[in-house]
């Protein structure tokens, strides 16, 4: 069905593909990297959008999962390159698919623990407790000298994907692009499923949900864990993009940035995170070239969005959300 929103989504998806292809053809790899950054940030925000947009869970601690994904990539590849076994004598790997699985599982387990406690609260307490847990992970990473501590950990050679030379910017972009589209598809499937309907219903009214026999806590915990796993996948890709992972990926600025991306793009919208990430990176690039204080202007724009265009960029382009 080609509704206005679907058209906008299609255009966004195609733009993100065509722009780096064109830049590559014109010999401008810098723009390919910029597009890769958009795709990865969009993926991270897409993960958060599951919890925030569908479940109404304002997690201010998703940087923890983003960073765990990043450290999974960094730690696995450093062990593989140094041939030093890790815990339990397991060896590292430079294969992206394995790294992704490890990243998602590690973040999922941490999210299960964090969510099991945080989801007993709601509203501002939930925001604060997720922030507190993320800060614990942050300080843990800073004080862990084995993997660089405060200085972070370099990934000497970008991890590999079977059949591709990931050192080529365009190849790595395509990997990220396909992962993003697949995750958007997963989001759409979840939103249309019984679980997705229950997650959204729990956001709208907890009592009513209970009277139809749904346990809001369990539904939310599942949503929170899936959300964290997607964000961790983005973290692993982000580490590979920069070939570097540091505690800054875990900092609360990162959590805030992910929320900003969602608000800019449109909360709960399928392509909201992508629209938000594109806008954010474009601002960062355009305004950042003009002034060092570009975040001041981003703040003004965010203020404008919250006050005058609450549906975000997608709300402006595609009309009010069907799901709100």
């Amino acid at each position: 069905m080609l509704t206005r929103e679907n058209t906008v989504n299609l255009v966004l998806a195609l733009l993100l593909l065509v722009a780096p292809l064109a830049a590559n053809a014109l010999g401008q790899p810098f723009y390919v990297t910029l597009a890769t950054r958009i795709a990865i940030l969009a993926l991270a925000a897409l993960g958060l959008n599951l919890a925030l947009g569908l479940g109404g869970l304002v997690s201010f601690g998703h940087a923890a999962f983003f960073g765990i994904g990043g450290y999974a990539a960094g730690i696995l590849s450093s062990h593989a390159l140094s041939y030093e076994p890790m815990m339990f004598g397991l060896s590292g790997t430079v294969q992206m698919p394995i790294i992704w699985i490890v990243a998602a599982i590690a973040a999922g387990l941490v999210a299960l623990a964090i969510g099991a406690i945080s989801l007993r609260t709601s509203g501002v307490y939930f925001i604060m407790i997720t922030l507190a847990f993320a800060q614990m992970v942050y300080y843990f990473a800073i004080s862990w000298p084995a993997y660089g501590g405060e200085d972070g950990l370099s990934i000497l050679v970008r991890n590999q994907f079977p059949g591709l030379n990931t050192m080529k910017p365009l190849s790595f972009f395509l990997v990220c692009y396909v992962v993003l589209l697949a995750s958007i598809g997963l989001f759409a499937l979840i939103r249309a499923s019984r679980f997705g309907a229950a997650l959204q219903a729990a956001r709208q009214n907890e009592t009513r949900v209970a009277t139809v026999g749904i346990h809001p806590y369990r539904i939310r915990l599942t949503g929170f864990v899936i959300s964290a796993m997607v964000t961790a996948l983005a973290g692993a890709l982000y580490a590979d993009l920069n070939r570097f992972v540091s505690p800054s990926m875990l900092s609360w600025h990162m959590s805030g940035e992910l929320i900003v991306l969602i608000i800019l793009g449109g909360t709960g919208r399928l392509f909201g995170p992508l629209a938000g990430a594109a806008l954010y990176v474009a601002f960062e690039f355009a305004l950042g070239g003009l002034t060092e204080r570009w975040q001041f202007f981003l703040g003004l724009i965010l203020l404008g969005v919250v006050l005058f265009a609450r549906g975000g960029l997608l709300g402006l382009l595609a009309g009010k959300a069907k799901h709100g």
Binding site: R194, A201, R208, V212
Partner: peptide, 20 residues
């Protein structure tokens, strides 16, 4: 419940499926 309380921002189909 009194006052026909549905989940306002879910479609008819989703309201039914969520409860199934």
């Amino acid at each position: 419940p009194e006052g026909r309380r549905c989940f306002p921002n879910l479609s008819v189909h989703e309201n039914l499926v969520a409860a199934a």
